[in-house]
Every structure is written in C-alpha cells, then in structure tokens.
C-alpha cells in the first residue's frame, strides 16, 4: 500500500473539491462468516467501483472502513480518496461483536479528518456513518453507551448522517435504533449488500454534486430496493 501520510496530506491541499467523508463501520464477527461476508465484500467492492466511475465523486468521496470482529475494533482503511486507495479491502469474519468500540473509533477518525479539512481550508459535507451488524454488541458496555451518546449528539447537531442497518434475523434492531434519533434503522432484505451499496454510491454522487451545507434529499424511493423497516 502506498497511501502514505504525505500523499494523503498533499491530496488534501491540492484537491479543491469539497469532500464527502463516509465511514463504513462493519460487523465482521464470526456469525458473518460464509455467504454474508462474501456478499458484504462484493458489495463494498462494487461501491468502490461505482465511486471510481463517477469523476465528481471520485475526487470528493473519502472512504474509511472500521470493522468489528475478532476481539477488537480495527481501522482497515483510513480516510483517503479512492484515487489514492483504489482497491476495496477484503474483510474476514471471526470472533466477537465489539460494536461500541468500533463506532467510537469511527467517530474519532471522523473528528480527526474534519480537523484536517479545517486546518487546510478544505470544504466538506456532513460526514456519513454506515453501521451494519447481524447480531448484538458484546463489547464493553460503557463503550457502547458512550458510542450511542456521541452518535446521537452529532446527529442532533446535524453534524453526522447515520445509516444503521441490520442484517438477518438476529440483528439487534433495538441497539441500532438507539444510534439513530432521526429515523428508524433499516433491515437489509436478505443479503442485498450490492443493492445497498449501489444506492449508497448514488447518494454519495448526488451529494458530491451539491454544495456543502445544501440539503440533499435522500433517495427514499431507492431504499425500497434493498431495505425494509
């Protein structure tokens, strides 16, 4: 990987396009093993491809991925444009579901990136946090409640758009709901990761063609293609 510090900083300075930071916070616990993780990988890969095909989104979207599985939350990809970080990582499923830790890490990354934008004088859109899980969190309880409080506060201050999405029958929709004060969490239909990520990339493209601060309507109609309440 050649996405080193310098290139990332240089890109930040040279590229005048307003950024759309998107953090994917994904469940990679043991229960995701097999077809779910394969479909998730394929979905993320298609998401990357779709963004790269759109010239405006390519220079605007910055994607980071935090996974929660194994014993810990892990940052698989830090914020950078897909020009610098063109290939989707391959996710492996195993272990526990430390969701709170992962969301806290994701929020930390977002905060840090926003500071970098501000320091360099780069405009940015309200960041997005996609939270996907197929189970219930079993990390540290206080971390989880801290993550929920931070997320809710940011959403209420209009500083974050959050998309909590449950996968399969065992996803803890109650916890996901606590993360989303403005609209109810959605449930993925079956394993329609591809449809979800296709929708997400379209929404990112649409946002990248607006101006920061402008309200962009979400394609609610499109949600029906992959999600349900």
């Amino acid at each position: 990987m050649d996405n080193n510090l310098l290139v990332r900083l240089e890109d930040l300075v040279n590229n005048p396009t307003a950024r759309v930071p998107v953090c994917l916070c994904l469940d990679t616990s043991g229960s995701m093993d097999g077809q779910p993780i394969n479909e998730l990988n394929e979905g993320v890969r298609l998401f990357y491809e779709a963004i790269k095909e759109d010239e405006t989104a390519l220079y605007s979207a910055e994607i980071s991925i935090v996974t929660f599985g194994g014993n810990n939350a892990e940052c698989i990809a830090d914020f950078a444009s897909l020009e610098l970080q063109p290939n989707a990582p391959k996710l492996l499923a195993s272990g526990m579901t430390p969701m709170g830790e992962a969301v806290n890490m994701a929020l930390d990354l977002l905060e840090r990136r926003k500071d970098e934008y501000k320091d360099r004088g780069v405009d940015y859109y309200q960041p997005w946090l996609v939270l996907m899980t197929d189970g219930e969190p079993n990390g540290d309880k206080s971390e989880l409640s801290r993550a929920i409080n931070r997320t809710v506060e940011l959403v209420n201050q209009k500083k974050l758009t959050v998309f909590p999405i449950g996968i399969g029958a065992y996803a803890d929709m109650n916890v996901l709901e606590q993360f989303s004060p403005k609209r109810p969490p959605l449930k993925l239909q079956g394993l329609k990761f591809r449809e979800f990520f296709a929708w997400l990339s379209k929404s990112v493209s649409k946002t990248s063609q607006s101006t920061p601060g402008e309200s962009v309507k979400l394609d609610v109609e499109g949600i029906k293609g992959w999600g349900e309440l």
Binding site: A18, G121, D123
Partner: peptide, 26 residues
C-alpha cells in the same frame, strides 16, 4: 483562476454558507 477553489474556503472555516455571509475572504 484558482482552479476549483471557492473564494471563501479557508483554514479553520465554518460551513461555506456561513463563510460567505460573513464575507471573511482569506
């Protein structure tokens, strides 16, 4: 002339609308 750079983007700036209203050209 400053290819792609909005006039009010600036270090430590707020959102672009607020910067325009303040006319804090940098």
């Amino acid at each position: 002339m400053l290819p792609g750079k909005p006039p009010y983007s600036q270090q430590g700036g707020e959102d672009p609308i607020a910067n325009i209203i303040k006319m804090d050209f940098s």
